[in-house]
Amino acid sequence: MTTDASTAAAVSYREALTQAMREELERDPNVFLIGEDIGLFEGSFKVTRGLLHEFGPARVVDTPISEAGFVGLGIGAAMSGLRPVIELMTVNFSIVAMDQIVNNAAKVRYMFGGQVSVPLVIRMPGGAGHQLGAQHSHSLEAWFTHVPGLKVVCPSTPYDAKGLLKTAIRDDDPVIFLESEGLYAKKGPVGGPDDLVPFGQAIVRRSGAHCTIVALSRMVWIALDAADTLAAEGIECEVVDPRTTRPLDLQTIADSVRRTNHCVVVDEGWPECGLAANIATHVYEACFDWLDAPIVRVNAADVPMPYARNLEQAALPRQEDVAAAVRATLARGA
């Protein structure tokens, strides 16, 4: 985490997001927040804590449980120039609103010949690890990344959470902002009111000469843990965090793979037609001649998420899975 400019106090990923929204609400009267239980209740994960009190109910709007309805409302408001920041309580409920996201938010600008923009942010926490069972444990980065017209953001640190959310709110396109439930308590430095993190710029979280590990969101931390383990064995990994999957910074990934000649991609989502599969394809196309061994993907198991703690842990990518994948690709390429 050495490449981020830092301020003195470490704040949580959760508080970093709150700061971003507070600063943007203060900066631009067109920004408003809308979602389920974000006001009086201060958010299911308390990301909007204090904001109703500070900005009032006209700008921090509690909704009924109507995801398709209030996502559509946000799109309409954005089409007329407001800048809604929608909170979906979790990524799981975005599925109910998928028609609005895919058919309206993503397409309105294109199909009407650029006559309107949709400056909209849809924030939602995703991921698994809390024994929430099959219907509350999704990682849907791949679904959203599939859709032209959307931008997709997956921050892994407090600094990026704040800087990317500010960029998202100021962007004139619809942005899917995927937070990780498992990272809300993670602490780190954050930037100031004008420290924006641009879309489409990956960051190298750790340098190493032997194998590139591409990982996003909470998987970055799994990858860093694996890199520590492997370093003790003399294997130096380079961990690349793309930070946004659409746009995807292929250059930074490709530059790394061309140095290390090996690549592992870690993705908390399912393997089939998944994000890791997509990134691996890009790397093959850009780096085929540099690769010494096949790319190895590390994904969630290809099952609905089970409840039992041991089964859930077995279904999710763990640092030992990542370490094993690195050893396997290095063994093939040796």
């Binding site: 408003f32 006209a58 398709a68 309805g69 209030f70 996502v71 559509g72 409302l73 946000g74 799109i75 309409g76 408001a77 954005a78 089409m79 007329s80 120039g81 407001l82 028609d99 609005q100 058919n103 309206n104």
Partner: peptide
């Protein structure tokens, strides 16, 4: 093109007027 799909957009346009 999706039946019912534009209804919440109009509510959003109304929301913006009210806002």
């Amino acid at each position: 093109g999706i039946v019912g799909g534009s209804v919440p957009l109009a509510v959003g346009l109304g929301f913006a007027i009210s806002y």
